[in-house]
């Protein structure tokens, strides 16, 4: 039985998804949250296999939330559920260290299938996407790319490798909190916190502990 935790600020969305998931014999919803603040304690308490999260939340940034979950509970996988498009979702998923994303289509993409694959430890992001995201974000002339500092670039590359904040901190000999600040700085530089499209970047679980 795969245990699923839902994070979305729209109750009707949570109810709809829960209905679909609970109808499956091998899946069950073990908890829900509507805000960033509710999420971490409840995830700690319920220990789900997969967290399905909307990255646009009323009290915070889902990319940061996803990284926090992954850092504290590396065995929990995250799957982004987003109203944004594939390109934005891909950026978001890479930065969040999520295993993949699902667009908010009802029938277009299989949410259930994605949850099962993520729970099995598969990475849903296409090969090359991470590298392309890093290349785009690092290229000084690239479309969304502001100039990044050396540290930010290092952090970005480790993010793309799928490392959690804690692991990045160990690798670069930085406190986890400092890594978090770098990530926030990165997001700010990419305009993700201010602009609509960026705030939606979603992420789910990443693979490696």
């Amino acid at each position: 039985m795969t245990r699923v935790f839902l994070v979305d600020d729209h109750e009707v969305v949570r109810r709809g998804i829960a209905g679909i998931i609970d109808a499956e014999p091998d899946l069950e919803v073990v908890g829900e949250a509507a805000t960033v603040r509710q999420t971490l304690p409840r995830v700690h308490a319920t220990r789900p296999d997969v967290v399905v999260l909307d990255v646009r939340l009323p009290d915070g940034n889902g990319v940061d939330l996803c990284r926090a979950i992954r850092s504290e509970l590396p065995e929990v996988q995250c799957l982004m559920l987003t109203a944004h498009d594939d390109d934005q979702a891909s950026y978001g998923a890479v930065l969040a260290g999520a295993a993949g994303y699902v667009l908010k289509d009802i029938r277009g993409q299989s949410l259930l299938e994605s949850i099962r694959r993520v729970a099995r430890g598969e990475k849903l992001l296409r090969q090359g996407v991470s590298a392309q995201v890093v290349a785009d974000l690092s290229a000084p002339s690239g479309a969304p790319a502001p100039d990044l500092t050396l540290r930010e670039r290092q952090v970005l590359e480790l993010i793309a490798e799928g490392l959690t904040n804690r692991q990045i901190g160990e690798r670069l000999d930085l406190a986890e909190k400092t890594v978090k600040n770098y990530v926030s700085g990165l997001l700010a530089k990419l305009g993700m916190e201010r602009r609509t499209q960026a705030a939606v970047y979603g992420a789910s679980a990443d693979r490696r502990p």
């Binding site: 009707v12 969305v13 109810r15 709809g16 209905g19 109203a83 939606v200």
Partner: peptide, 16 residues
């Protein structure tokens, strides 16, 4: 993004 897609998505889930 914030309102229309979310509501359509929710309505679609309910219908399904």
């Amino acid at each position: 993004h914030d309102r229309v897609i979310q509501r359509l998505f929710a309505a679609g889930l309910t219908l399904q």
